[in-house]
Nucleic acid binder design. Structure first.
Lengths: 197, 197
DNA sequence: ACTTTCGGTCAACGGCCGTAGAGTTAAACG
DNA sequence: CGTTTAACTCTACGGCCGTTGACCGAAAGT
């Protein structure tokens, strides 16, 4: 079973990685509350007490399992940013990191996860807001861009809405592009619709 | 304390209403798992066993507390629909019904709530999709509209992102309008951006 | 080879929860 | 008035969970 000869440190790292992998998977599909340390231990082929010994508490395990959340905030300049956002969304619609899914899954019911999510999303918003400083209300626009993408991701990955599940990722990205551009561009949309409501 | 003279049926309805109100409030702010029947009973000034006697189970209590979720799917015809969506979002950004909040709060971690949410959102998507039958992929477009609004609402109401909390509701609606229109309109956005990525 | 160290297990405690059943009080009804 | 009915409470069971401390066996150090 276990590869025959490896140092103690190697074994430790290996089982720690197995525990973290199991934790990420379970946190991602069941959320914080419904994921038991016992289940994580079983998934890792290990005794529950060992998980405690390694991570101290369920909270700490969650934090460690999720800490890869802060994806790159946003380097680009103007509307290449839109390309980038849609690319990461499009490509990863089928493959978001499990830590991110775990975070999103738990952020509405676990206050600590909510705080972590607020910080991570805030970083992204700040990054995008900086790139949008040409427009009015850049922060608000950035927040709307991020929450829009968040909503689509939730509907797609976490809720599994059929209308989104059945659509190819690049089609979603293509339809989303003008909407995101409309959020980032200062002027009125285009065709003379109506001034205000 | 209790208003002096009322029939047995009146008292029953009153306490049932008190229980439901407490349940809605707690489910909305803590989600299904973290809301205990004991806490609901305390909030209603009642013994926990009475909640069981009235509603049979915690599940049933949740279902009853949330059943007002399916807001009107969407009657309108074309882009008056956008007006309507943004109006309900704008007006209710500060006042969504607590049952809806409870539903949204729990849908990512409770499978039963997720199923209810999928049905409710599916109804809305179908309604909007019907109004969008002029465009290609009407259902997908409708799903993106709904998930976009969902994401903004989550960021605003459930996560409390500062950038959204500090913005007036009508400003949010105004910025969101061209984005939603971009999702519902068939043609390419407007200015000749770039054909594809 | 003896001892120490440490990855790992076992068994258990204490707490909180959903739920059930018997019991209590007072309004409805004859 | 006595009896019934129903709103409401008390008490407790059984289960699952996070967490703990004692214990075991093999690798590491001397």
């Amino acid at each position: 079973m276990t590869t025959p000869h490896q140092s103690r440190a190697d074994r430790r790292r290996a089982t720690e990685a197995r525990i973290l992998a199991g934790a990420r998977e379970l946190f991602a599909e069941r959320g914080f509350d419904r994921t038991t340390i016992r289940a994580v231990a079983t998934a890792a082929g290990v005794d529950p007490a060992l998980v405690m010994q390694y991570f101290g508490s369920k909270r700490e395990l969650f934090t460690r399992a999720v800490q890869a959340f802060p994806a790159p905030p946003a380097p680009g300049g103007a509307d290449a940013l839109v390309d980038q956002l849609l690319a990461t969304l499009g490509l990863k619609l089928g493959g978001l990191p499990e830590g991110t899914l775990a975070m999103m899954r738990s952020m509405l019911t676990d206050p600590a996860a909510a705080e972590q999510a607020r910080e991570a999303l805030g970083r992204q918003i700040d990054g995008i807001g900086a790139a949008l400083s040409a427009a009015d209300d850049p922060e608000l626009r950035a927040a709307l861009v991020i929450t829009t993408l968040l909503g689509v991701t939730i509907g797609h990955q976490l809720l599994g809405l059929p209308a989104l599940r059945d659509a190819p990722a690049d089609r979603i990205a293509a339809l989303l592009r003008p909407a995101v551009e409309a959020l980032t561009e200062p002027g009125p949309s285009c065709g003379p619709r109506r001034p205000t409501a």
